[in-house]
Design a binder for these strands. Structure first.
Lengths: 315, 315
DNA sequence: CTGAAAGCGCTAACAT
DNA sequence: ATGTTAGCGCTTTCAG
C-alpha cells in the first residue's frame, strides 16, 4: 500500500500516508528482506589502504546510496590475495546483496568466480583484469604513470629510481609498465635505472630511499614512487640525508592523497578520482541489483598534477 | 540446534555441525533478526572529521566486532548539531541495534533522549556532557590542552595565539579551558594573547594564520591550534610568509593524526587513543546490547608528544 | 479495486 | 532430551 501501487485511489493513498506519518510508522526492513530475499546492504571491501583513499571510497559509495534504502557495511580484509577462499566466506557471512571491491580484491578472479556462483553482484574499483565482469570503474594506470615519467624526462632527468608498490596490487605492474614505456621512448638504459621494492606504506618508502642512497655510483636525480605515502617517506629520508627537494632530487608520487598537498614542497603526483570511481561502481552495482544487465565499464580520467617536488636536475 | 543449546548430546551436535558444514549451510540472519528483533547491526556516526580520525574510529569498532555477529554500518551525517531531529530519524531509518556516536553527536543530548525513548543503545566517544549516559570513552581534553600550553610556557613563550576548533564540538571549549588555566597560572594577560576562530579544517588554519600575521603589534612566538589539520595549515602559511618553524614560530596541534608525523618539522601534539576509545565504547555498547547494566565510563590516557615544531622563542 | 490468507526461514514455547 | 508448532512483519497471491 505504501509502495505506490498503481491501482489505488489517490484519496485513500493520501489518507494512509498521512496516518503512517502521524504514527511515525516505518516498515520493518528486516521482514521485508525476509520475503524479498534482499538484505538491502552492500559491503565495501578493501585491504589496508591509506586513510584518504578509504575515506574517498566510502564517501563515493555513500553519496550514491544516499537516496536509496541500501546501507553500506565496511569489510576490510587483512590479506585478500593470500586467502581468496577465506575472503569469500567473509563476504558471504555478512549476508549482502552486493559488494563493492576495491583493489586488490577487485582483481581477485577466484573471488569473482565464487561471487558469481553465489549470485552476489559486485562493483569493482580500478581492476586491471577482465573489465567486462561486474560493474567496473576503470583507470588507465599505465598511461598515467607514463605521463609522470615523461614529465621527469622532459625536465632533463636521466638517472632515475623507481619505488615499487605492493606487488599483489595489479596496479603496481601497470604503473611500472607506464614508466617503462616512457624510459624506452627516451632510450634510458637499464644502467641508468634502479628499482626498489615497496608496499605502498610510508615506512617502505623510507626504507627504499635508504637503500637508494647507500648504493654505489652516481645518485639518481629523480625518484618515481608508485604512491604518495612512499614518496613522502622517500622525501623524509632524503631530507634527513641533507638533500634538498627539488634542488638535489625530484620526487613524484601517485594518487593525490591529502598528504601530497600538505607536505612542503607540495608533491607532483597523479590525481585518481576515487570518489567518482566509487560512485560509478556503486551506481553500476545498483543497476545489477535491480535486474538490469551489466553496465559497460566506465573509464575515469586521471590528471598529472605538477607541483613543487619536481624540477630540472642540478648542473 | 546450531546455537549450542545445553541439553543436546555431544555426538548429535557434532553430527549436525558436520552436515551443516558439508552443505555449506549458513543460518539466515534476516529471519533470525525478524524473530529476535535484532538486526545485528550497529551504526557508527560522525560529522566530517579528518581521514585518519575516521579510519582509527572504524578500525576500533571493527576490531571489537571481529568475533561477534555484528556488522558495522557507516552513517556520516552532515550537520548533527543543527538538526538533531533529522539526525535521529537518520539513525532510526537504518534499523540498528545500537550506535556508536563520535563527536559532536556524542554530546547531542536531544539525540540521546530520543535514542533512549526508542530503546536504541549507544556508545559515546569523548563526550564532554553527562558521561553517565550510554557506554562512554572519555578523554580529558582540558588537562591535555593545559599540558600543551604549559610546554610552550616552559620554553619561555609569552605572546601566544590560539586557533580555535569548531565551536559546535564541545571539545573545543574544553581545550580552550585547559589553555586558559595554564595562561592564568603563568600570569599571561589578555593583551599577550589572541584567539582566532577555526573549524578544524586545514583551510581554516591557513585563514586564521593569515589573520594572525596581519595583526598590528608584535607577532606571537607560538601558535596553539586545537587540532593538527589547522596546525599544519598555519605552518604552511607561516612558511610562505618566510617564517621558520620552530626558529621564528612554535606551533602545536592536537590529535596526533598521520600528518603530524609526516610533516617537516614533525608536529608537537597530543595523542588521543582514538582506536582504543572506539574499541572501548563498542565493547560497552555490546554489553548494553546483551542486557547488562551500563558499564562505567572509561577514561583514556592522552599523551603530550613533544616533537620538532616547538622550541624556545628567538632572542 | 480491496480484503483475506499463505508463507519467507528462523526461534521460542510447548508437547512429547 | 528431542520433535512439533506458532508466529515475527511483511509481500504476494488469490478471492471477493
Amino acid at each position: 500500500m505504501l509502495n505506490d501501487e498503481p491501482f489505488v485511489k489517490d484519496a485513500l493513498r493520501e489518507k494512509v500516508k498521512a496516518v503512517a506519518k502521524a504514527l511515525n510508522y516505518q516498515p520493518n526492513i528486516t521482514a521485508k528482506g525476509l520475503i524479498t530475499r534482499r538484505s538491502f546492504m552492500i559491503g565495501l571491501t578493501y585491504e589496508r589502504p591509506s586513510p584518504s583513499y578509504v575515506v574517498e571510497l566510502q564517501r563515493g559509495v555513500l553519496e550514491r546510496l544516499a537516496d536509496e534504502r541500501y546501507r553500506m557495511i565496511i569489510l576490510p580484509f587483512r590479506d585478500v590475495c593470500a586467502r581468496p577462499d577465506d575472503f569469500f566466506e567473509f563476504l558471504r557471512s555478512a549476508a549482502l546483496d552486493g559488494v563493492v571491491l576495491a583493489p586488490p580484491g577487485s582483481d581477485e578472479l577466484a573471488v569473482l568466480d565464487r561471487l558469481d556462483a553465489a549470485g552476489i553482484h559486485y562493483g569493482r574499483i580500478a581492476p586491471q583484469l577482465e573489465p567486462g565482469r561486474g560493474a567496473c570503474s576503470l583507470l588507465d594506470d599505465t598511461a598515467a604513470a607514463r605521463e609522470v615519467a615523461e614529465h621527469l624526462l622532459a625536465l632533463g632527468h636521466r638517472r632515475l629510481a623507481v619505488i615499487l608498490g605492493d606487488p599483489t596490487h595489479r596496479a603496481s605492474a601497470a604503473r611500472s609498465e607506464g614508466y617503462a614505456r616512457a624510459f624506452a621512448a627516451h632510450d634510458i638504459g637499464e644502467d641508468a635505472l634502479c628499482f626498489e621494492p615497496g608496499d605502498f606504506t610510508f615506512a617502505s618508502g623510507e626504507a627504499a630511499m635508504r637503500r637508494i642512497l647507500s648504493r654505489p655510483g652516481p645518485r639518481p636525480t629523480a625518484i618515481l614512487a608508485q604512491n604518495d605515502d612512499m614518496a613522502v617517506g622517500a622525501m623524509t629520508v632524503a631530507r634527513e640525508a641533507g638533500l634538498s627537494i627539488p634542488g638535489d632530487l625530484s620526487v613524484t608520487g601517485f594518487d593525490d592523497s591529502d598528504i601530497a598537498r600538505l607536505i612542503m614542497p607540495k608533491l607532483t603526483t597523479v590525481r585518481q578520482p576515487v570518489f567518482d570511481m566509487a560512485m560509478t561502481a556503486t551506481d553500476g552495482l545498483l543497476k545489477l541489483l535491480s535486474g538490469e544487465p551489466a553496465p559497460p565499464p566506465v573509464l575515469h580520467a586521471h590528471e598529472l598534477l605538477v607541483r613543487q617536488s619536481t624540477a630540472a636536475p642540478a648542473g
